[in-house]
Design a protein around this nucleic acid. Sequence first.
DNA 1: TGATACTATATCATACCGATATATTGCAAG
DNA 2: CTTGCAATATATCGGTATGATATAGTATCA
Lengths: 184, 184
Amino acid sequence: MFDVKTLCLGILTMGDASGYEIKKIFEERFSHFFAASFGSIYPALNKLTQEGLVTCAAQAQSKRPDKKVYSITPAGKIAFMDTLNQPLAPDRHRSEFLALMMFSHLLTLRQLSDAIDGKIAEYRREIDAISDCENERPCSPGEEFVAGFGKAIYEAAIRYVEDHRHIVEGPALLSAAPEKDLTS
Amino acid sequence: MFDVKTLCLGILTMGDASGYEIKKIFEERFSHFFAASFGSIYPALNKLTQEGLVTCAAQAQSKRPDKKVYSITPAGKIAFMDTLNQPLAPDRHRSEFLALMMFSHLLTLRQLSDAIDGKIAEYRREIDAISDCENERPCSPGEEFVAGFGKAIYEAAIRYVEDHRHIVEGPALLSAAPEKDLTS
DNA sequence: TGATACTATATCATACCGATATATTGCAAG
DNA sequence: CTTGCAATATATCGGTATGATATAGTATCA
């Protein structure tokens, strides 16, 4: 069971980090399959510290809030290796775009086309973000696999939407047509 | 912004339903892009009733809890049409499988292969579930589009994982090999 | 000089999930 | 022939997570 707490622990197996740095790692390398906000990361780190799975060294910085650098403990490593054997929960997806498409019959052609074009653009941005991340740092096999997965999925999504948008746009086109029919 | 409350309202534009029936609709037709539990559906329906966007008619059933059938009001329809114009939040995904793959270097080949095989099987089950749903009822264009999207994505996922599992399994194979090397 | 962005930690209301409670019907396997 | 499981039906609660906001100094660019 991979909650934010467990993933923070996992990230700390790759090296010490502050809460802020962990957030950046979530955004840069985990964003297309997992999200975590400060509101869950900071409490998670506090709990992990209480449980003795990580330690916290406060680096006093002049003119900035103390930087709290967290390190995983041997007990923490054992706990993390343990969760790696736990059964995986099924994937979960939330797409407001697909929810909107379920009600395509209530939309005008314009609304529909704008939503679809915007979504394709979003998918392209995701692909670019993954490519950037790949180029910046050397990747472990795991990271390479996950990045490739993300790209493959977004590319498939673009292909599907481009090839099948007519399914929803067609009927909207017809329901907008009657105006023209009067003149023909 | 499509939260559970808004989607309940949307489902009620397609016909009256009880909380229990709404849950089933979420599971059967929305499950691959949106999840909602009783813990969010019942409170959502209560709020919608308070706001006058739906009405509730309690059907007394002998030997069962009263069935509360909800209907959307004209004000509810207007409110729903209104949210359809709101900007879409980006898609969100949570995959424990990909999280696990990020730590593939900590796993044995056996753990890795089992996880991958299990995930492929899960993807296949999802595709079958979508196909079943398609055959059972006549589909609106929106439903057809969304179902096709789900299938396309899961098929792409299977293809990617089958074609690229060696990226993570290869290194695990090598780190397990030394035993054999002694005899060769 | 002012605006914006970045580093850095923290909290709070709101939302949501998963488990559990309660109660009845009906079917199937042992 | 009864025991257990699945389905129908509503509801609550603890725990987890999000998104917005607060605070506060540095840096950069116009």
